[in-house]
Design a protein around this nucleic acid. Structure first.
Lengths: 330, 330
DNA sequence: GTCTGATCTGTAAACGATTACAAGAACGAT
DNA sequence: ATCGTTCTTGTAATCGTTTACAGATCAGAC
């Protein structure tokens, strides 16, 4: 005995399938009709088939979130925010891990044409012409959580990481630190490039020169540890390090302790993302809050809005950073 | 100009829709036929519609993963493992957050009848008769990542947390600690109950009595901090604490430091889950590895296997724990 | 009593794929 | 030349909904 269909309900209730559908979708019907249909639905334990409904209405009530790595706490924060907005609006969330390669991202965006989801939030690490082209031509609405050129003409929600780094530098300078180094992630990524430039500019604004900078091979804890010795070797006597994200910062702190340097007494450390890890690390990490939760929320809202009205002009939202001061800086 | 359908391709190629479908699905066809269809597909940029396909074949090629809280690093680990297996098998992953309430879990399982996914991996915090009933009656295969009674007759993959706690106790005793306390999460959850009992049994096996125990309101960092003072007040002179997960352990360590106790010199701390946080915390946290990645992997494999063959006997897999010793214990 | 309009319900045609079945082509064996 | 077999292709039914359209019912106005 297999699942009852709407036809079975109609038969049981002695009405037409159209009437059943109407009652189920809350369209006007007589009291008696509603009553009969509901009884039949109850009795048979009928549940409408999402597949059939999707085909007919052309919507799946699913949205996709694509991130490079679910292990990064910043994506967890975003994901939670997106999930919240999306499920409140009656959508399910499909989570996809793209990995670091842009070709996989392009393939993903192209694949959206299959229509398994009604929209996409993508947070790309690396962006190229192909990716932008695929996004513009995508069958379903796409919102980019990240930085793409204005001329791309797509909805975006991005952080202002140069400004964030400026906040960090300002804070460090105010506390008397001047020999400031930068531990970046891969510079060929969009955030990596933006943060490198932001760091250079921020130091210049204070009349300082970079004490040193190093580039980790990834935005991960392990890469942070690995890159730390290089950074320390390059800059004798540095008194502060700004890191391109919290994982790198925590990795660095472990190495600092290992070589006998104290945080923040000897070296102040600032992270970025203000993820849960910043609060949990020891000492708790001063971190630039780039608004990942808000970016996730806004991106989801933008996507929902565009699904409602596909003709609206593309919007570019910038979420401003704040600094969460904790004990890793003096 | 909207998306081309299979009919459009057929027209462009001058063949029937059946032939197009066959070529696309790799069924036998002449060289010329394959050639013509592929050219037309290429030309029109045709991509098959997942919604229509789902309706016809009765499969969506999606699987759902339901966890209580995506913010918990242990679920991130599981999720990554599940995603890997599932996407290698050509499925997409729908991630759902159920929250702590069992009624929401039941609603979720019932909702699977809508057929938006071909299977479900659920990791429930709290389990009751209703939930088990809904799982048994579910329209699609369900694998429980967690502990449910054998008589429930469902596929499960679970950890052996009592054994894990025994490992922790053994380790602490071997290092000369005897005044051991336990910081649990909510005892009305399945893992909470199992771990409380495991702790009591393990101490007894060593002829020890619990130094103290406390119950945090959640398995979170914040709850760990909040519960810490109670624990310390209840047991003057404790020399070790085992925590029901890593977040609680890290929360506790922060409080220990705050009251001037040193880890591990004064108090040894052991976490559970061996999540990435254990490695990242300072000092790095000795933690019971309950095999979350492997549990995720096995659960996904079990689900795929059951989708292939729904008549196979339910399997119960137990993943054995190991202890990752780090510097939070002497 | 008839007509108009509004309101409710049913019939049937979609949505876009897969696939059972039948028809046609090709080919070798007799 | 005919027949049977095999292989390829096309026609049309089907999956389970939604919804355009038309038919039925009914109330109120004349």
């Amino acid at each position: 005995m297999s699942r009852p269909t709407i036809a079975g309900v109609a038969r049981a209730a002695g009405v037409s399938v159209a009437s059943v559908s109407r009652v189920l979708n809350g369209l006007p019907a007589t009291e008696e009709m509603v009553e009969r249909v509901q009884r039949a639905v109850e009795e048979l334990g009928y549940v409408p088939d999402a597949r059939a409904r999707s085909l007919k209405v052309g919507r799946t009530f699913q949205l996709t979130l694509a991130v490079a790595d679910v292990g990064n706490p910043v994506y967890v924060t975003m994901m939670r925010a997106v999930e919240e907005v999306v499920s409140a609006a009656g959508y399910r969330l499909v989570v996809t891990t793209t990995g670091p390669d842009v070709v996989d991202e392009v393939a993903l965006v192209r694949g959206m044409a299959r229509g398994y989801a009604d929209g996409l939030v993508i947070s790309p690490l690396r962006v190229d012409e192909d990716l932008i082209k695929s996004i513009r031509e995508c069958e379903v609405p796409v919102v980019v959580a990240g930085n793409v050129p204005t001329k791309a003409g797509v909805d975006t929600v991005r952080a202002n990481s140069p400004k964030g780094i400026a906040l960090a530098v300002e804070h460090l300078v105010a506390r008397g630190r001047t020999r400031i180094a930068f531990l970046n992630g891969p510079a060929d990524t969009v955030p990596g490039a933006a943060r490198a430039k932001g760091f250079a500019d921020a130091l210049q604004a204070h009349g300082l020169r970079p004490s040193a900078s190093a580039e980790a091979t990834d935005f991960t804890f392990a890469a942070g540890r690995t890159a730390a010795p290089d950074l320390l070797a390059a800059a004798a006597g540095l008194d502060a390090v700004i890191c391109a994200n919290d994982l790198l910062a925590v990795g660095l702190m472990h190495e600092l302790v290992a070589v006998g340097l104290e945080v923040p007494a000897d070296v102040a450390v600032v992270g970025m993302d203000d993820s849960e890890l910043a609060e949990q690390s020891f000492p708790p990490l001063t971190s630039v809050n780039l608004g990942s939760a808000e970016r996730g929320r806004r991106a989801a809202e933008l996507l929902l809005a565009r699904i409602e009205d596909s003709s609206r002009a593309p919007r570019r939202i910038v979420v401003q950073p704040t600094l969460s001061v904790r004990r890793s800086t003096p």
